[in-house]
Design a binder for these strands. Structure first.
Length: 311
DNA sequence: ATAGGTCAAGCGAGG
DNA sequence: CCTCGCTTGACCTAT
């Protein structure tokens, strides 16, 4: 079982001034983009790519082989073609080196495009923006040279019902056919954290049965939208959708419980972990979504290790 | 170097 | 009608 973390490495930036932090999500607000243009986006993207390599090297040294790439490596990527960027040669060289390194080390790299991706929308413009964003993620994965399988998953939520779950799920499946093979081969769906949305069971019935893409089971979300199944049943159902590829699950705990503060929404992710993950005997990779990132995962690792030692 | 206000996109829940 | 939470807190301006 590999434990992974998402996008940000806190250790590498410990005690380092803001301007020199190791980060892969340098961006800018609209006003700055209008003023500075695509060339500045290119410079930020290159810095982000170089730091991505730095994080992966840190991951190797610290025995992390599972990591989620930020979706903001290329700022304002909807406004230009990546291969037209002025620093593209350098960017491509960096991403290619990253891919060779990651593949040689057996690292698993994934991504999780944002909540604005609504493949089920009835608004054509929203769907077009979603398709564009998904294609951009796949394009980056292709440049890096990552497998065109859910091993390098591009994971999204269905995320909306518009008052009719069945109808929205139908739209999701129809629009799935408009995606390139590069996206289709990697796309996965994750259960939502609201009762009105999609449980793991809903995804199995409404999405997997129809288009066959794997389901990422999020243990924390399941607490708020269980579809009538317990954790073990839902996990088993999700695991059954992955074929030959090792399934991914998401694990986080509630910040509201962590700080004993009822004002914090129970859905919010905790900073750290206090309970080890239970995978019910399944061989899965666990993406850890705690806010303290790799620091939380190191704690979780120790917890799991101590539990094994005690046996 | 830091504090405080500001910031693309979609949706649903809660005040 | 506004804010939060999710994706991922970071940018920008003034001090």
């Amino acid at each position: 079982m590999n434990l992974g973390y998402a996008c940000i490495n806190m250790t590498l930036s410990d005690g380092i001034p803001k301007t020199k932090r190791v980060m892969t999500n340098r961006s800018m607000i609209r006003r700055t983009f209008d003023k500075m243009g695509t060339n500045y986006a290119s410079e930020l993207a290159l810095l982000n790519c170089i730091d991505l390599f730095n994080i992966l090297k840190w991951n190797k040294e610290n025995n992390f082989s599972f990591y989620r790439l930020s979706s903001e490596i290329f700022p304002w990527s909807s406004e230009y073609k990546i291969h037209n960027l002025k620093d593209y040669d350098h960017i491509e060289m960096t991403l290619d080196a990253i891919g060779k390194f990651a593949n040689a080390e057996g690292m698993r790299l994934t991504c999780h495009p944002g909540p604005f991706n609504k493949l089920c929308s009835h608004k054509e413009n929203v769907v077009l923006n979603t398709i564009k964003d998904l294609e951009t993620h796949a394009n980056i994965f292709d440049i890096i040279g990552l497998p065109k399988t859910p091993f390098s998953k591009i994971n999204i939520h269905v995320g909306a019902t518009y008052g009719n779950k069945q109808k929205a799920a139908d739209a999701f499946c129809r629009n799935f056919e408009r995606l390139s093979d590069s996206v289709k081969a990697r796309l996965t769906v994750e259960n939502d954290d609201k009762a009105s949305l999609y449980s793991t069971k809903d995804l199995y019935e409404l999405i997997y049965k129809r288009i066959g893409i794997p389901i990422v089971h999020d243990f924390h979300h399941h607490l708020f939208c269980d579809g009538g199944l317990n954790q073990e049943e839902a996990l088993g159902l999700a695991v059954s959708t992955w074929g030959d590829v090792k399934p991914v699950v998401h694990y986080s705990q509630s910040k509201s419980i962590e700080y004993n503060n009822p004002k914090i929404k129970p859905q919010a992710h905790s900073d750290f972990y206090w309970e080890p993950v239970n995978t019910y005997g399944h061989n899965v990779d666990v993406m850890c979504e705690a806010k303290a990132k790799e620091k939380a995962v190191i704690g979780l690792r120790e917890m799991i290790f101590n539990k094994m030692e005690a046996k």
